[in-house]
Amino acid sequence: MSDSILSLRSYNPVVKVLAPVPAMIVAGLSRDLWTPAVFAVIGLVMLLIAGRPRARTLAWLLAGPPLLVALLTVSFGVWTDPALVDDTTAVLELGPFTLWSGALVTGLATGLRVAAVMLLALIAGLTTDGTDLVRSMIAHLRMPYRIGYAGFAAMRFVPRFRRDLEIIRLAHRVRGVDGGRGPVATLRRYSGYAVPLLAGAMRHGDRVSLAMEARGFGAHPTRTERRHVPLRARDAVLALWLVAVCFVPHLTGVL
């Protein structure tokens, strides 16, 4: 874990998860363009400066939100009820269909809201390790350690179940399962995979639980923890900053 104060990775995971929530709510419930735009930019800038994304993530971060906003703008141009926006300018006319500028604005606002919420979520998403989050939840949210360790176990199960799912898919294909194409057939095929996948998963979980108990898991109300996820002054600063940005919309009224 990098310990630089300029790296989001050095901040407490629980703070990173919880502190953006007020901002996410304000952004999600806003109806104008300005508020979500500001939040989106704040989130993006924080991620670019302190998130230290790798090249591929960086490309997605830079290209993703504008694409998302563009997509939503256009699609809302199509979905919006014309009766609500036919007092705005017609941007495009295609036979019976008219693209109103009001519809585009609604779409733009929606796109900005989705992008803002996503970017605020990614502040924790891109810079937090699952195990640290669980450790921090145990230490700072008083989550029982037994549930925390179920979380660790679940994380370890994932690659195994992915492999299992792959094999089950092959195995069913070999057996001649072929429900055809289309969403319904796909859904049916997947629910066929679910039973062996889950049955195998639960059996595996059962064996793991026996091994854990045999090694003393749950012997005492607490256990020795060698690793601590720190909660420091910088985390308070981060939390204050993310709560403070919630007042940005009110500033616009002042300006």
Binding site: L68, M202, G205
Partner: peptide, 30 residues
């Protein structure tokens, strides 16, 4: 522990299933 691990197993399988769902829903909802 047995019950917790059963939940962990179903949870992990659900998580595996929902990761594509989260991805798809983000693109689709747009």
């Amino acid at each position: 522990t047995r019950y917790l691990m059963a939940c962990a197993a179903i949870g992990a399988a659900t998580g595996v299933l929902l990761i594509p769902a989260f991805f798809v829903s983000f693109t689709i909802s747009a």
